Amino acid sequence: MMGPIPYGRQNIEQDDIDAVVKTLTADFLTQGPKVKEFEDKFAEYVGAKFAVAVNNATSGLHLAVLALGLKPGERVITTPITFAASANCVRYAGGEVWFADIDPDTYLLSLESTKNLIESKPKGFFKGIIPVDFAGLPVNLEEFRNLANIHDLWIIEDAAHAPGGYFIDSKGEQQKCGNGNYADIAVFSFHPVKHIACGEGGMVTSNSEVLYKKLSLLRTHGITKENMKEDHGGWYYEMQELGYNYRLTDIQSALGIAQLFKNDAGVKRRNIIAETYKKSFKGKIKYQSLPGGMVNAHHLFVIEVDDRKGLYEFLKANNIFAQIHYIPVHTLPYYKNIDYGNVDLKNAENYYSKCISLPMYPGLTDDEQEFVINKTLGFING
Rank of each mutant, 00 (worst) to 15 (best):
E226Y: 11
E200H: 10
G222V: 04
L242P: 01
Q240D: 09
V210L: 09
N245M: 11
T249N: 08
W235N: 14
T205Q: 09
Y212N: 11
S216A: 14
C198K: 01
Q252M: 11
H221R: 10
Y237A: 12
H232L: 03
L218D: 05
G266Q: 14
A186C: 08
E241N: 11
K262F: 05
G234W: 15
V187A: 06
E209I: 10
I185K: 03
R247L: 09
K213W: 00
K229N: 11
Y237C: 05
A258R: 12
S208H: 09
G233I: 12
H221S: 06
G202N: 04
L211A: 07
M228K: 14
V204M: 03
L260I: 13
F190L: 13
E226I: 12
T220Y: 10
Y246K: 02
K268N: 13
L248H: 03
K262P: 07
A265N: 14
I251K: 05
P192C: 11
N263V: 15
D184I: 02
Y237W: 10
K225I: 09
K268W: 02
G243A: 05
N227P: 00
Q259M: 13
R269W: 00
R270H: 12
T249V: 07
E200S: 12
S253H: 09
S189Y: 09
F190E: 13
T220R: 12
K268A: 15
M239C: 04
K213G: 02
N227M: 08
D250G: 10
Q259D: 04
G256P: 11
S189E: 12
G243T: 03
L255N: 14
T220G: 02
L255T: 03
I185A: 04
R270I: 08
R270E: 13
Y244P: 00
Y237P: 01
E238W: 00
K194I: 02
F188T: 07
I251F: 00
K268Y: 07
E226R: 14
S216G: 02
T224F: 02
L215T: 05
I251C: 05
R247F: 11
H232D: 10
E209A: 05
I251N: 05
F190W: 05
L215K: 05
V210N: 11
N227E: 04
L255Y: 04
L218C: 06
C198D: 00
R247W: 11
Y236S: 13
M239Y: 00
G234Y: 14
V187R: 06
A258Q: 08
A265R: 15
